[in-house]
Nucleic acid binder design. Sequence first.
DNA 1: AAATATTTTAATCATTTGATTAAAAATAGA
DNA 2: TCTATTTTTAATCAAATGATTAAAATATTT
Lengths: 200, 200
Amino acid sequence: MAKKKIDASTEEKIIEAARKVFTEKGYAATRTRDIAEEAGLNLALLNYYFRSKEKLFSLVMAEKIGQLFGVIAPIVNDDKTSLQEKIELIVPAYLNVLLQNPGLPLFVLSEIRNNPEHFSNRVQAGKILTQSILVKQLLEKQPNVNPLQFILNLLGMCIFPFVTKPVFEASGLLNNASFNQLIEERKTLIVKWVNLMLDN
Amino acid sequence: MAKKKIDASTEEKIIEAARKVFTEKGYAATRTRDIAEEAGLNLALLNYYFRSKEKLFSLVMAEKIGQLFGVIAPIVNDDKTSLQEKIELIVPAYLNVLLQNPGLPLFVLSEIRNNPEHFSNRVQAGKILTQSILVKQLLEKQPNVNPLQFILNLLGMCIFPFVTKPVFEASGLLNNASFNQLIEERKTLIVKWVNLMLDN
DNA sequence: AAATATTTTAATCATTTGATTAAAAATAGA
DNA sequence: TCTATTTTTAATCAAATGATTAAAATATTT
C-alpha cells in the first residue's frame, strides 16, 4: 500500500481559503465552491483532502477557538503573577490577537450559538471561568461580587468593539485605521478601568 | 378588483415563526420550510403572504434592529437629563430588553456582518454614536477621551453577557436562572462602574 | 523507460431549497 | 343558494449545493 504524501502546499491553500471564507460568512452561508475558488482549485480536491465541508469546518473552528482562548489560558492560570499583573498582561496581548483577527469573536460566538456541539473546548473554557488562579484572586479582592462579573468586563471591554465592528463599518462611522486607533487607546484605558472597578 | 383581506392571524403566525427561527439560526441556516412547519402551515402560504424569504427576513430584521436601538435612542437624545441620569436610565432599561430577548444582539450583529446592506438603520445608529446629547455630555466630562470609548463600555457591559450566553450554556457553566441572576446584579453594578470610569 | 502511485480535473449525482402553479377548500357577497 | 373572491394545499420546478466518479495529468519508484 502506498504511503500518503500529501502536498502540504495544496492542503494549506485549501485550509487557508477555508479560514477566510468560513470566518467571513459563517458555516451555513459558506459554499464549498467558494472555498475552492478562493483557493484557486477544483471543488473535488477539497473533498479529496478533507472528506467533507463539515470536517474542514471542524478543523478551522478548533483552530479559531484555540486562538480565542489560547492567549489568556496561560496567563490566568499563572500563580506567579498578581491580579494586577495579570490584567496588565491580558489586555494588550488579547487586543493584539484581536487586531490580527478582527472577525474571530463574532465568528466563534455565532457558530457556537448555531451549533453548540462544535464547541469542543467547552470543558477548558469552563475551567478558566470558574477554577483559574485569576478567579481566586478576584474573590480575594472582592469577596462579595461574583468573579464572573469582572471577567465579563475584562473580556467584554476587549472583545465588544470587535463584535460591533461590522456596525461601525456599515454605518460608515469608522474606517479601519480609526478603528485600530481606538483599540490602541483602549490598551491602557481598559487596564485603568478594570483596576478602578476592583478598587472600589 | 377584490380588496385584499388578509387573515391577520395567519400572517402573524408566519411572522412569529419567522422571528423565532431566524433569530435562532440566522438567515443562511434558516429554511423556509422550517418557518412554515414552526407556524404549522404550508410552505406555499409563506410565499403567498410575504413573497420571498428575503422579504420576510427584512421585516424581522428591521423589527429587531428597532428593538436594539429603540430603547436607548430617546434616552441618549434627551437634553433634559444629566449624563448621570442617562446612565441610570439606560442600563436597567436595556438589560430588561435583553432579558426579554437574549438572542437579539448576536443575531443582529452576525447578520449585519453577513449582509451589511440589511442594516437599514445605519444612519440613525451613526447619529446616536456621534451626534447625540449623550456624546456632548461625555465630551464635557472627559474632553480628552473619545466618547465612543465610554459608549462602547456602557453598551458592551450590558450586551456582552448576552453575546457570550451560548458559551455559558454550551459549557454547562450557567443555567438560565443563574444567568438572569447575574444580569440582575449587573443592573446596579454597571451604573457604579461607568460612573467610576467617568470620574477618574 | 516502464510501471505504479498520487494528485487534479471535468462531468455528474442526489438532495436540498426557494419559489411557482393549478386546483381545492373556505369565505364573502349577491 | 349561487357566484365570485380569498385562502390553503399538494405537486412540481429550476437552481444551488455537497459529494462522488472516472479519467487525465503529474510525480514517484523500480
